[in-house]
Amino acid sequence: MSLDKDQVTHIAMLARLRLADDEFAETVDKLSRIVDFVDQLSAAPTEDVVPMAHPLNQSQRLRADAVTEPNDRDRMQENAPAVSEGLYLVPKVIE
């Protein structure tokens, strides 16, 4: 097993994912298999190869710094689980 329980717990925390107890063992097993599988990349002959940044070697296009979108807050917040007076509600973060 290339990953142990502690590593998977750490990764899950970094990814902000709570794993249920009954899915934890399977996750450790399957993630380990995936990591073992991609480990074969270390054998590839990549000396002096520049990492690929874009499939067509394009650079990021910039747009003019101009206002293009109207303020659509109320409509956008229709999908929010909890809002009040235009604000998203979350549990208290500051005492």
Partner: peptide, 27 residues
Amino acid sequence: DLLDLYCRSRGEGFGAEVKRRIMTGTY
């Protein structure tokens, strides 16, 4: 708390394969 909101919303909302890929990517 906020962390619990993130972790449980994502843990419940995503299926097993999606969680595996997110975790592979995070790793």
